[in-house]
């Protein structure tokens, strides 16, 4: 699909082995490898740094504790009393997206969050989980989520479809935001990188400086998008508890 030296070539999925189960292609690709690396990094980092359990934390232990506190605070601020139950889920989600984005910042490393398949799968897990949670908490009354009180009765045939569409658009906006941010950032860096080579004499240094700045911005976006993913998950969990 992508040409030989296209800025989009970095997003190509390359299967390392051909495996098919019941006509489904489940080959181990560079995308899968990237995810395995991400999970390995998270697991090793969190277990090794917290392992000493020292009362006066080392720098690395402090980083782990900061991440824990960050999500714990976020959850208790948005969800409130029932927050503790969802901490493992939100924390895993946050770390997976965050470290996935960060791993993608390493040159030659594949960024799996720049594929809508991956982000949409993550968003679908959140969406389906939250919907089930809503039904578990409220039973059939969960449908009143789409019913806005205090509106003239003849407006409901119009408002209920709008509310339903608004609800169904959640996983799409959640996944598109993460995917498009990562895709755009990485493409931009590659485009500017091609300018470095193409520009004559020493003027190539100019886009090079720009790339350095962009890389910094990309790291900020990598963090910000993971944060947005986590906070929206928290808000949706909160919605499943408190209708309106």
């Amino acid at each position: 699909m992508a040409a030989k030296d296209s800025p989009l070539k970095q997003f190509e999925v390359i299967p390392y082995s051909k495996t098919e189960v019941a006509n489904y292609d489940i080959s181990f690709t560079n995308s899968s490898l990237s995810m395995v690396i991400t999970v390995a990094v998270i697991t090793l980092f969190l277990t090794l740094t917290v392992n000493p359990r020292s009362l006066v934390p080392t720098r690395m232990q402090l980083i782990s504790e900061l991440m824990y506190n960050f999500i714990a605070q976020l959850l208790s601020d948005t969800v409130g009393d029932n927050a503790k139950k969802y901490f493992p889920f939100v924390f895993s989600l946050f770390m997976f997206v965050l470290i996935g984005n960060m791993v993608g910042m390493i040159p030659y490393q594949f960024t799996f969050t720049s594929h809508i398949v991956v982000t949409f799968a993550l968003a679908s897990v959140v969406f389906i989980g939250v919907t089930i949670l809503g039904f578990v908490n409220h039973g059939i009354k969960f449908f009143t989520f789409f019913y806005i009180p205090g509106v003239p009765f003849y407006m409901h045939p119009l408002l209920i479809p709008i509310e339903v569409i608004s609800y169904l658009s959640r996983p799409i906006s959640l996944s598109v935001r993460l995917f498009a941010n990562m895709l755009a950032g990485h493409t931009l860096i590659k485009v500017f990188a091609s300018f470095v080579v193409a520009m004559p004499f020493f003027t190539g240094a100019l886009p090079l400086v720009f790339i350095v700045a962009l890389t910094g911005l990309e790291i900020l976006i990598a963090f910000l998008q993971a944060y947005v993913f986590a906070i929206l998950t928290c808000l949706y969990i909160n919605d499943a508890y408190h209708l309106h």
């Binding site: 608004s166 658009s169 598109v176 935001r177």
Partner: peptide, 21 residues
């Protein structure tokens, strides 16, 4: 840019669902 992006994804997502339905 980030703010505009957030807003545009919201509109696009709702439109995608609407057209799909």
């Amino acid at each position: 840019a980030g703010f505009g992006f957030k807003i545009s994804t919201e509109i696009i997502a709702a439109l995608v669902v609407g057209v799909g339905i």
